[in-house]
């Protein structure tokens, strides 16, 4: 590479941080909607529907939200790995 490696690295770092913040924002929005939204605020409305033999809101509050949390962290771990490779900022 002929360009200055330090400044190139700097732009990579900044681009990574922007993309990382975007990913976090999307995942935490889902986190908020599922937990405090579906699990608490809209639970009564969701309870008019059923999943299996349970009211939907009740199942989300006691099971579905926890599965979602695990999935969100998994997606972030994979996503952040990819972003680090894409912007060349791995350890």
């Amino acid at each position: 590479m002929e360009s200055d490696s330090v400044s190139e690295n700097k732009s990579g770092r900044e681009a990574f941080w922007r993309a990382n913040k975007r990913l976090i924002f999307v995942l935490l929005s889902i986190w908020l909607i599922v937990s405090l939204g579906c699990g608490v605020w809209w639970i009564e409305w969701l309870n008019q529907y059923t999943i299996g033999e349970l009211p939907l809101g009740f199942w989300i509050a006691q099971q579905g939200s926890i599965y979602t949390f695990v999935l969100l962290i998994l997606i972030y771990a994979i996503g952040a790995d990819r972003l680090e490779r894409k912007y060349g900022v791995e350890e």
Binding site: I24, L28, S35, V40, A61, Q62, S65, I66, F69, L72
Partner: peptide
């Protein structure tokens, strides 16, 4: 505790697991 609280027991379930999403995305790394 959940057995006594019924549906409202979910505040402990979500409260004590949901924090890990914050930890993993915002603090730990």
């Amino acid at each position: 505790l959940i057995s006594v609280k019924g549906s409202d027991g979910s505040m402990y379930l979500m409260g004590w697991t949901g924090g890990y999403v914050l930890l993993a995305l915002l603090l730990a790394p």
